[in-house]
């Protein structure tokens, strides 16, 4: 089990598809509608920009439940990554370094992961209650009107992940 603390200064080339890792650091939740807006806001310029620094960042495909009283966060597992495929190459070009989700990615995404030397992880799918235990802090970042699809900044500790696609384009799904 490799330990990773953030990705901005981590040597991503050391990660191989199939590696089990323990991830600590900051991740940003973003799913369908947040991706659409991110690409619109960054892509068009027009005085708008990304609500967080994409360079070196990790995006988690997740829309948690509401936070029950007395808890840091509610259930917060990964959603199906492939729905974000059409937006991902653009974000990787902007400097996005890591993605966490579940399931396969398109060939275009795999090519972009290789080109921009980034990495795609799997989180324990359908295990949102379990994952909530690894989240230590939550802060809203942007798009509050999207409700469960807003962007949140999560600080996680020792979150268990599996490298699904590595920076050389290697994939556990063959």
């Amino acid at each position: 089990m490799k330990r990773i603390i953030g990705l901005s200064s981590f040597n991503i080339a050391k990660l191989k598809a199939g590696d089990e890792v323990s991830f600590s650091g900051v991740i940003y939740t973003a799913r369908d509608q947040a991706h659409k807006r991110l690409v619109r806001d960054i892509g068009r310029g027009k005085g708008r920009e990304s609500p967080f620094d994409i360079k070196g960042a990790v995006i988690y495909y997740c829309g948690p439940t509401k936070t029950p009283k007395g808890k840091v966060i509610g259930s917060c597992g990964p959603t199906t990554s492939s729905r974000m495929d059409e937006f991902t190459p653009f974000l990787l070009k902007q400097g996005l370094k890591g993605m966490i989700g579940k399931g396969r990615r398109s060939q275009e995404v795999i090519t972009a992961i290789k080109k921009y030397r980034s990495v795609y992880f799997l989180a324990p799918a359908g295990c949102g209650a379990l994952i909530s235990k690894y989240v230590k802090k939550v802060e809203p970042v942007a798009y509050a009107d999207l409700g469960p699809e807003q962007i949140l900044k999560l600080e996680v500790e020792n979150l268990p992940l599996i490298v699904a696609i590595d920076s050389k384009g290697g994939s556990i799904y063959g």
């Binding site: 997740c62 829309g63 948690p64 439940t65 029950p68 808890k71 509610g74 259930s75 917060c76 597992g77 959603t79 359908g126 295990c127 949102g128 209650a129 909530s132």
Partner: peptide, 8 residues
Amino acid sequence: DKLAICQD
């Protein structure tokens, strides 16, 4: 802990 099994 009375947490949803899945966030969905």
